[in-house]
Design a protein around this nucleic acid. Structure first.
Lengths: 204, 204
DNA sequence: ATTTGTATTGAACAGTGTTTAGTTAAATAA
DNA sequence: TTATTTAACTAAACACTGTTCAATACAAAT
């Protein structure tokens, strides 16, 4: 069974080459100028071959973004949770999320632009029964829960609250990513004020 | 001078036909499938003629969205302001904004998707010295200011606060527009909880 | 050595935004 | 009135795009 194994590894290798090239182009040239022919050129294959590995362009983007986004959410989960100050933990997590997303803005744009069909379907849907984003939301939920228990956060629907933290922070992030030429100082002021209002909104 | 006047009116008419067709296609077929040739076909002209009236496709989209967005912001400004309850006024305004945007989701997508270069440049930049969005932000600013004066809103940077209200609500809106198949009931719960947290965050 | 199966190619199809040479018609000047 | 200028418009072309598909090359199995 060594032969089919190797062949499968070769196939996997080409698949990864495609994904790597796509990610490279995405970061280098931007979302708008990512094309099948550019990927084919980059990996030195003919354009047609890509369709033996992926259904269509959307699937490639979805996979690339899923992986990159997955890594971000993974890092997010590695941030230590301060049980004494769940409010500060929420702020730290979401600030880290913002910073990680700002490191790969083209990826964030791809998340935003892709109709949420290809991507959010992949990101939100089950991965080992539960998606990575859901895991992050759940992590947020635990912080909120704990905050309520120790009386630092007022009683409210936990899941709903986590979603509002998520969406409102995404709104801020959109502005930071899409709107060019905001001075760095102003960006920081926006981020700080966002959490100022948000945490006050959660507090008792 | 009746001749040049008429010719200018004719030119304006064709220009408006292009914009009308673009808006129609945008609403009917969606942002992704809006093309120059489709516009040309709709108005029964050759594709090339469009470039006598607009620099490029982005300018058409920017103009269409600018007008539609302008109408929304206009309606927003017509909403009466309750001086007794500036917090309720903020909520009402932003809720109306959400509802108006959900009426023309493809337009909102175009705002989101267009890199903010073509559009936010147009929307944010001066229109009679000050942009429509800035006017809406200013209207928000006045509510916040009044809220602070009568002691219903805690003291904080007014402009910054208005921007956070705007961005966080935009984040919620993105989710409502892009994410399909959210039950109407869940949408309302999200909206209510968003303003629940936001207004608490503003309060003293 | 021949068959089988699959990875790969390159051309083709239908579409995109944009440019441009050439036509047409109308407004102005002689 | 005739000639000239100006502007609108067309059709074709260019350089792309995603996607499909018949033909091919090539490694593995018989």
């Amino acid at each position: 069974m060594g032969i089919t194994e190797r062949r499968e590894a070769e196939k996997e290798a080409v698949r990864n080459k495609i994904l790597y090239a796509a990610g490279k182009i995405l970061a280098r040239d931007g979302y708008e100028s990512l094309s099948i022919r550019k990927i084919a050129n980059e990996i030195e294959y003919s354009p047609g071959v890509i369709y033996h590995y992926f259904k269509d362009k959307a699937e490639i983007i979805a996979t690339v973004v899923e992986e990159g986004y997955g890594r971000i959410l993974q890092k997010l989960r590695e941030i230590p949770v301060d049980l004494e100050n769940p409010d500060k933990s929420i702020e730290n997590s979401m600030k880290a999320y913002i910073e990680l997303m700002l490191e790969t803005p083209e990826q964030f744009k791809a998340v935003l632009l892709n109709d949420t069909v290809g991507i959010a379907d992949k990101v939100n849907m089950l991965d080992e029964g539960i998606s990575k984003e859901r895991k992050s939301i759940q992590s947020l939920c635990r912080m909120i829960q704990h905050g309520i228990e120790i009386g630092k956060i007022r009683e409210m629907d936990i899941e709903l609250t986590a979603q509002i933290i998520w969406t409102s922070t995404h709104g801020l992030l959109s502005r930071l990513v899409l709107e060019k030429r905001i001075p760095k100082e102003q960006k920081e002021r926006l981020i700080d004020h966002h959490f100022n209002i948000l945490l006050k909104g959660l507090s008792k």
